[in-house]
């Protein structure tokens, strides 16, 4: 199969207006990926699926990623070919920001395998996929408001102090429970002031 650079050049020749760049993977896996601009993404996906040299008929994995440092949310598609038994070709789509411009084109019309996985990304990251046939929350309940897989999600403060804390648990315990009284100072009261324990 052609390399990611060759594939990018071929795609640029076929879709002259599109912005396509190669995201290099510096790790030993060397699975490089193609970063697409959202608007022609679905046409490119159809091309990748139907091109006789590629035949990427199988979308294996759809991953949402939150990049607060880049200021965007990202979806990664891992494509393989069942007909020609090669792969992966990795596509990345990025939103404009993390707050209001979080719309990306859905690739479910191209590969139905994306249906539940894109719903999951919508649920946990809040990326809105246009033309998805059934975009609802999939894992959390419908009334839920947050997107819990984002890096800045604050979970409900609802578990008690553990005797052997480590790292993040200790930080939560500090927020949650008062320090033990130092000798001579009045008792600060029971720990029932935490939100989880209110009736």
């Amino acid at each position: 199969m052609e390399t990611t650079d060759q594939l990018r050049d071929r795609l640029l020749a076929r879709f002259p207006g599109a912005e396509i760049s190669v995201v290099t993977n510096p790790g030993p896996a060397a699975q490089h990926s193609l970063l697409l601009s959202p608007s022609p993404a679905r046409d490119i996906a159809v091309f990748l699926r139907d091109d006789p040299a590629l035949r990427l008929d199988y979308c294996s994995n759809v991953t949402g990623i939150d990049w607060p440092t880049l200021g965007c949310l990202e979806v990664v598609y891992h494509l393989y070919s069942m007909a020609l038994k090669h792969g992966p070709v990795i596509l990345r789509l990025r939103t404009t920001n993390r707050t209001d411009a979080v719309t990306l084109p859905s690739l479910t019309p191209v590969w139905r395998a994306c249906e539940f996985q894109e719903r999951e990304v919508f649920d946990l990251y809040g990326i809105v996929f246009t033309e998805h046939p059934d975009l609802r929350r999939i894992l959390m309940w419908d009334e839920f408001k947050d997107h819990p897989m984002r890096k800045d999600y604050v979970e409900p403060d609802d578990y008690e102090w553990e005797p052997t804390p480590h790292g993040g648990v200790l930080e939560k315990a500090k927020r949650h429970y008062p320090a033990a009284p130092v000798a001579g100072v009045a008792d600060p009261g029971p720990a029932s002031a935490s939100p989880a324990t209110k009736p």
């Binding site: 993977n25 510096p26 896996a29 994995n61 991953t63 990623i65 891992h78 992966p88």
Partner: peptide
């Protein structure tokens, strides 16, 4: 090292894969 990898095997139920992104810290970024 910083990088990413998708590894998959033929599990009894189908393709089970893990997609990991490392940012060089002891925990995976994704």
């Amino acid at each position: 090292k910083t990088g990413e990898a998708y590894g998959r095997i033929e599990g009894p139920k189908g393709e089970i894969g893990f997609y990991l992104i490392s940012d060089g810290t002891p925990n995976p970024y994704r």
